[in-house]
């Protein structure tokens, strides 16, 4: 687990000396704006890493995007505007939560579809099961056979 992140980390470390994902210089002085920036950053992926958000990534590209986000927040842009800008620039690939469109219909529909299918399957199974008789008590022959079976040898 996390091996890929590791490889990613290792590769990045070779290129750049280790810097923390978010460095103190990047942090905005207004805590509310900073919190918004952090929340927003966790929605975008680092384009050169495996499954890391830009909030977690050490790559310089991630840092650039973080800086863009913070500048835009300070400039008074809304989250939606910033997201639109980044998607226009890097494509849907940058979004960690893919948008709902034709290509992802199946993805977003999957959980509901699975529950529906399973419920259908179980309803079917129940219908078949209904009407099955309850077990009658053992008859004499069975009792005798059981007694023979259970007799200590």
């Amino acid at each position: 687990m996390g091996h890929l992140r590791l490889v990613c980390l290792a590769m990045l470390m070779c290129v750049a000396s280790l810097s923390h994902a978010v460095t103190p210089e990047e942090v905005l002085s207004n805590p509310q704006q900073e919190a918004r920036a952090r929340a927003l950053s966790s929605q975008f992926r680092c384009l050169v890493c495996q499954n890391e958000s830009i909030d977690e990534s050490d790559a310089s590209l991630a840092k650039d995007i973080r800086t863009i986000i913070r500048k835009d927040i300070v400039a008074g842009k809304s989250d939606a505007e910033i997201t639109r800008f980044l998607v226009a620039r890097y494509g849907d690939f940058v979004l960690l939560k893919p948008p709902l469109d034709r290509a992802t219909l199946l993805l977003w529909g999957a959980p509901a579809l699975i529950v529906l299918l399973a419920a259908l399957f179980m309803w079917q199974a129940r219908r078949q099961q209904r009407g099955e008789p309850e077990a009658p008590p053992l008859d004499a022959a069975e009792e005798a056979a059981l007694a023979r079976l259970m007799r200590p040898e």
Partner: peptide, 13 residues
């Protein structure tokens, strides 16, 4: 419980 025992007995036989 009686039904369950009966079923178990038939399986054992």
């Amino acid at each position: 419980a009686r039904i369950a025992r009966a079923l178990a007995a038939r399986r054992a036989l």
